[in-house]
Simulated assay, not measured.
Amino acid sequence: MAWIVLVISGLLETAWAVALDRSAGFTRLVPSVVFAVALVLSMAGLAYALREIPVGTGYAVWVGIGAVGTALVGMLALHESASLPRIVCLLLVVAGVVGLKVFH
């Protein structure tokens, strides 16, 4: 259960990062509220998962999911560069996250 919560929390990290960008410095209400709610839920999920998962592994997986998710949203929805080197780097992050889970 802790791993499922950790993955969901990582996805919520993507949500709050994108909402933070869209909030335009907290000048837009809806993205600002989405940011706050997603941030609290993401942190609460991370805290719950860390009761069973070591902090080094849990935090690295959480950050990895959030970073890759945010970069993918940027590439697919926000017209950021999707160059081959960037994609390869994201795949390396995914490999690291999978490795942390496998060798946990």
Rank of each mutant, 00 (worst) to 15 (best):
G69K: 04
S81T: 13
I87T: 09
V97K: 03
S81M: 03
V68M: 08
V61C: 05
L12F: 08
V18Q: 00
T70R: 01
V37C: 08
G99F: 12
V5M: 03
I4Q: 11
D21E: 15
A77N: 06
L20N: 13
L39A: 10
S42D: 02
M75G: 04
V98I: 12
Y48I: 09
G45I: 03
I8V: 15
Y48V: 09
S9R: 06
R51F: 13
G96W: 03
S81C: 02
L78W: 15
K101V: 14
A15Q: 01
A77D: 04
L91R: 01
L12S: 00
L78D: 13
L50W: 06
V40P: 03
S42F: 01
V68E: 05
L90W: 13
A19L: 14
K101W: 10
Y48W: 13
V97C: 03
V18Y: 02
V33G: 13
G10F: 12
W16M: 08
M75N: 07
A60G: 12
V55C: 03
A82S: 15
L76I: 07
C89W: 14
R51W: 06
V5E: 09
V102S: 05
W62L: 08
I4A: 15
L50R: 06
V98C: 06
A2P: 11
V68N: 05
V68I: 09
L12D: 01
L41M: 11
A77Q: 14
A71I: 00
L100D: 01
P54G: 11
L20I: 13
G45H: 05
G96Y: 05
C89E: 04
G74K: 00
R86N: 09
A82K: 10
V30I: 12
R86G: 13
G74L: 07
P31G: 10
L100I: 10
L84H: 04
R86S: 12
L11W: 09
P54N: 11
P85A: 08
G56I: 05
G58F: 11
T70I: 03
S23M: 12
S23A: 04
A77R: 10
L92S: 07
E80Q: 15
L11Q: 10
A38T: 07
V34Y: 02
A15K: 02
R86M: 13
G58P: 07
C89D: 00
G99D: 06
V18P: 09
T57K: 08
W16E: 13
M1G: 11
W3N: 10
T14W: 14
W16D: 03
R22A: 15
A15E: 01
L46P: 01
I53P: 01
I8K: 05
V88N: 02
A95C: 11
R51Y: 11
S81W: 04
G69W: 07
G25S: 02
V97A: 02
H79M: 04
